[in-house]
Design a protein around this nucleic acid. Sequence first.
DNA 1: GTCTATATTTGGATAGAC
DNA 2: GTCTATCCAAATATAGAC
Lengths: 212, 212
Amino acid sequence: METDKRIVNAMAELLRVQGYAATGIQQLARAAKAPTGSIYHHFRGGKREVAAAALRQTGAVYIQVLPMLLDEHADLATGVEAAFAAAAEDIENTGWANMCPVGTVTGEIADTEPELREVAAEVLTSWVEEGTRYLAGRGLSGTDARALTYALISALEGAFILARGQRSTEPLLAAGRAMAAYTATLPAGASPSSGEKVGPSGADFGEGVGGF
Amino acid sequence: METDKRIVNAMAELLRVQGYAATGIQQLARAAKAPTGSIYHHFRGGKREVAAAALRQTGAVYIQVLPMLLDEHADLATGVEAAFAAAAEDIENTGWANMCPVGTVTGEIADTEPELREVAAEVLTSWVEEGTRYLAGRGLSGTDARALTYALISALEGAFILARGQRSTEPLLAAGRAMAAYTATLPAGASPSSGEKVGPSGADFGEGVGGF
DNA sequence: GTCTATATTTGGATAGAC
DNA sequence: GTCTATCCAAATATAGAC
């Protein structure tokens, strides 16, 4: 693989495990099997620019996860609960490792790294837009689709933190039940097979991406 | 104030703003107006031990917030939505500053600092127990009370992250609506004035505690 | 107990040979 | 473009005067 790709992938992995501040350039160089000088050759902006690239890449990968999981169930509320249950199983099976760096890094740098915060905001916005589009395709109104998307991402990110902290699937399962109950109260949750598929198909998670 | 209290308060504030890894001992000493030597005199375990003390202190303070907010409304679902709306207003008014360090720090250190992770887990568990006790007092069954508590904390922590990242109250409002709808589906949500009050009264947030 | 000074290591970043 | 060597500032932690 090209050096710059290796650097970005290694950064994404380190961000996932230990966050931004705790990740050093030398550690990154070791993980990417590249000398420190190469990092600054490919990323003039140093650590910050590498982290930004890693966040964008991860965001583009994970944007496909939720639609893919929900597509498997005809009933939307059932799909929501199943998606949280799948996340719970995954996080337990990987030894309570973090699933995705975006939430962790956002919380860490939102008040101290304006440029990275903007990148994180872009990624989150892309998730919301994609989720809203998908849920509208499943029959929800535009406002309901957007509100549900925000609630789903919030509950998922928060439950991930509790689950990792407590080493328990209970937060994810409880959040899933809650979001499923909320989904069931929304009008017109249609089957995914009414008309054509709306979610992106053939999700390809690449090579260096851990989790899920 | 005594030196050790100043150190813990300063650490709590720094954790809230920039997390654990980004917080240095010298920065902490400056913020606490104490020389670095004093920190190691009072906390043999160094940075880690100070952070543990700060997490425990913050946890004890925030355990009173949710019951206090929910007590203001006779209808539980209404109270839930109002609590999220209040959080949204607070975070916007404070310039999107972090409200509470526990979630942020937990995400940051869950895979790398076992001792701090255990402290965070204890704090989260105490929140869950207190929330469950309160909601059971409002008429929910034990299992429903516990599941709702987990879902509420998860949604709140996750929505905080999205709100800070996007500088928007929308995630908190959407999460609040979702959790209110879920709450309304649970049987027997009683009024807080049926019988005596169950929440801790006279919440005192101390002096050096930001947010809320 | 408080505080100064410092030991030691590691941080991000750069210059320049190849 | 790759990689080595290194600069300088900052990190955690300690020793010891007061």
